[in-house]
Design a protein around this nucleic acid. Structure first.
Length: 420
RNA sequence: GGUGGUGUCGCCUAGUGGCCGAGGGCGCACGCCUCGAAAGCGUGUGAUGGGGCAACUCAUCCGUGGGUUCAAAUCCCACCACCACCGCCA
């Protein structure tokens, strides 16, 4: 949820943010109008209610005829209260549901525009030149007996897979390395629920009713998370954190589930785009004024992790239109995929400012004793998709794959040897 | 899944229809006392939204959502969470 003070005091900033995202800015006027009417209705309800309360006291003290007369007035007033309350509630609900559709205010500096309007900020490492024809990650994975897509499809359908043998070891090692990195950086390791309640999903910035990406369990009104960000954002929901607790940093390890509806035919080969994968995710709760610095901090941990797997990558500043609901700014690290001849997303870090906290009610006790909303940020430390980059970038002519040095202690192997 | 119990302002607790405008204790904060501290005494003690420069003030909040009533922490219904026991299960 956006800050209502911005809507009331600086609506132009909200309009500009909407336009940068390529969204309609006329919603701002609709919201302002609705807000005014909602507040008027509330005032009217409150004064009627106050009157009812004082009349109620008179009723309780009165006797006989006087009581009967007062009772009649009280009945009339009760009807008024009821209708005033209904009106206030109706307008309030209307306002809230419209407000829920407004995405976070874009951080100044984020490029305007859509998916293709990103800005490349940094490039690290040089794409390797091969003196043989490089194989793609699936061919490598199959030769290593590390990835089994066919049986994944047999058991669960398209976009499901098994990681087997060295494939499983590679993922476990990678995610363990990510966890270790996070722990050393002061994050609290967490293994999180993957099924969450609708309010947790909504609070994090996903629309339970319409989002085509979300798996639902309608029997139980539960939703499969697409990232442990959701569970970690919900972790402190409806809490007022003690003054000295921020920043709070968590590293969540979970399986992630995505329906990938609308991506038919896209990345169908291999494990680049799948319905289920594993991820280590950083999640920070910080004071709002520290959010931009924390964002850089998360990005730095991502750089360090990517350096450990020795894959060339670049960092992009995502354009406003590609930010998603909650983010005010997003940096993606994209790893070089040799057989595709392009960079693909390996990490993503978002500054959600107080957007999620307002929806989820995450507050902290400030120095003046007042509760304030915390800013939340998230960032990827490692995912199943990294296996793609590791296999392809570190392959050798014979189909073996050299395990990046930093990863060896976690995998327990220096080289993955093909079995076929 | 079944049966029973519990859910009140940070914690404990009082409160079965109208002076509950939620009382008390603990904790905490400030003050008094003291050389200092403890003890003791006094005062204060939440959240959200609105109004006022301000002391302040109004509304909402007693697990959540409905309902009954002029009036609900209190009565009714549903749900949720926790505890205990039983059943089932990786």
């Amino acid at each position: 949820m956006i800050d209502l003070r911005i809507l009331r005091e600086d609506p132009d900033r909200l309009r500009a943010s909407q336009r940068a995202r390529g969204e309609d800015d006329s919603i701002v006027d609709t919201l302002l109008d609705l807000d005014g009417r909602r507040r008027a209705a509330l005032t009217s309800f409150e004064s009627t209610r106050a009157e009812q309360k004082s009349l109620g006291k008179q009723v309780s003290r009165a006797q006989g005829e006087e009581k009967a007369a007062l009772l009649q007035r009280a009945k009339d007033l009760a009807a008024q209260v009821k209708s005033a309350e209904a009106e206030a509630e109706k307008l309030g609900a209307e306002f809230d549901s419209l407000l829920q559709t407004v995405p976070n205010l874009v951080e100044p500096g984020a490029p305007a525009g859509g998916e293709d309007d990103y800005v490349v900020l940094e490039t690290h490492g040089e794409p390797r030149t091969f003196d043989f024809e490089p194989k793609d990650h699936l061919e490598l994975g199959e030769r290593l007996d590390a990835i089994d897509m066919e049986r994944g499809a047999k058991v669960s359908g398209a976009r499901f897979f098994f990681l087997k043998g060295v494939g499983a070891r590679l993922q476990l090692g990678l995610l363990n390395m990510g966890m270790q990195h996070a722990i050393e950086a002061g994050f609290v390791p967490m293994i999180t629920p993957v099924l969450v309640k609708p309010e947790t999903m909504q609070g994090t910035g996903f629309t339970v009713a319409h989002d085509a990406e979300i798996y639902r369990l309608p029997e139980d009104d539960l939703y499969l998370v697409g990232t442990s960000e959701v569970s970690l954002a919900g972790y402190h929901a409806q809490e007022i954190l003690p003054a000295d607790q921020l920043p709070l940093r968590y590293a969540g390890w979970s399986s992630c589930f995505r329906r990938e509806a609308g991506s038919y035919g896209k990345d169908t080969r291999g494990i680049i785009r799948v319905h289920q994968f594993d991820k280590v995710e950083m999640f920070s709760y910080v004071r709002p004024e520290d959010a931009v610095a924390e964002h850089q901090r998360l990005l730095q941990y991502e750089r360090e992790m990517l350096a450990k797997i020795e894959v060339p990558y670049r960092i992009i500043d995502t354009a406003a239109g590609d930010l998603g609901m909650s983010a005010a700014r997003k940096f993606d690290c994209e790893g070089w995929i040799p057989t595709q001849g392009r960079y693909r997303e390996l990490t993503s870090t978002s500054n959600c400012t107080e957007f999620q906290s307002r929806r989820l009610g995450v507050r902290f006790r400030d120095k003046d004793g007042k509760p304030r909303y915390a800013a939340t940020l998230n960032g990827t430390l490692a995912t199943t998709r990294w296996i793609v980059a590791i296999l392809e970038n570190h392959q050798q002519a014979d189909g073996s794959v050299v395990v990046p040095e930093a990863l060896r202690p976690y995998v327990g192997l220096d080289v993955l040897e093909p079995v076929k």
